[in-house]
């Protein structure tokens, strides 16, 4: 079954076309990565799919909810961890999670249950009383993802979740993302090739707002005639694939 069905999705800013007639289907439970160089249109695509930006043309349906006509429906089934850290700095870890429960309208009991569950899942026990603004970059990213998950989303958007993290913090976040695979649909944007290759079921490569290629990491390597995923990406983006 399809979780996301994108049809001719287009976003224009004056004379710049950020996303150009994007057509794409993402399956339920799939971890789908959008790859591309800066300005490829990945973040604009995510922003349109999460109802943060209105498309100029086209549409997308997330589990049947249109991003053009049913933003409330879309918002009820998604979670997002934006590119920049999106936590309330003067609230502690637990309070940040409770805040997200509250804005989703959870009862007090459910809020307590979900908060405890995510504190255990993400290993926040020792730091649950610490202000989010005082946490390291890696812990803030973890918290950001936990905040996106607390509403039990059916589709999770992770916009460059490991950007700027050290190797250990990145590896720990990968483990968390892997643990979610199959349970919910995940749409990930990243600049890190090894991240996309290691985590994704399928990868879409974008350039100048256009989807150039789509396939599993192995299919894309085969298409480019190389064993290295990074080389395959470079070949595709440079247009060296016939």
């Amino acid at each position: 079954m399809e979780a996301v069905n994108i049809k001719n999705l287009t976003k224009k800013y004056k004379d710049v076309t950020a996303v150009d007639k994007l057509n794409l289907c993402i399956h339920k439970g799939e971890l789908f990565s959008l790859l591309g160089v800066n300005g490829a249109g990945k973040t604009t695509t995510v922003k349109m799919l999460t109802c943060l930006v209105k498309p100029t043309d086209g549409n997308a349906e997330l589990l049947g909810h249109s991003i053009v006509t049913d933003c409330a429906g879309v918002k009820s089934i998604i979670g997002i961890s934006p590119q920049e850290t999106a936590v309330a700095p003067n609230l502690n870890v637990r309070e940040n999670l409770i805040l997200m429960c509250g804005v989703h309208g959870f009862s007090r009991e459910k809020s307590r249950f979900k908060t405890d569950e995510l504190i255990n899942l993400f290993g926040f026990k020792e730091i649950s009383g610490k202000k989010a603004g005082k946490l390291s970059g890696g812990w803030q990213r973890r918290l950001s993802i936990a905040m996106a998950l607390i509403s039990e989303p059916e589709i999770l958007f992770l916009d460059e979740p490991t950007l700027g993290l050290d190797v250990i913090a990145r590896s720990e976040l990968w483990d968390i993302i892997r643990s979610l695979k199959g349970k919910i649909t995940i749409i990930l944007t990243t600049h890190y090739m090894e991240e996309a290759e290691s985590l994704s079921d399928r990868v879409g490569i974008m350039k100048d707002g256009v989807l150039l290629e789509l396939g599993t990491p192995d299919e894309l390597k085969k298409l480019a005639g190389t064993d290295k995923f990074e080389d395959a990406f470079i070949s595709i983006v440079r247009g060296n694939i016939k």
């Binding site: 999460t50 109802c51 943060l52 409330a72 918002k75 009820s76 998604i78 979670g79 997002i80 961890s81 934006p82 590119q83 920049e84 850290t85 999106a86 936590v87 309330a88 700095p89 997200m100 804005v103 989703h104 309208g105 950001s144 905040m147 996106a148 509403s151």
Partner: peptide
């Protein structure tokens, strides 16, 4: 800080 962006994607 992108917190508003996150909250804009919630039912608020």
């Amino acid at each position: 800080s992108a917190l508003t962006e996150r909250l804009f994607t919630t039912p608020l």
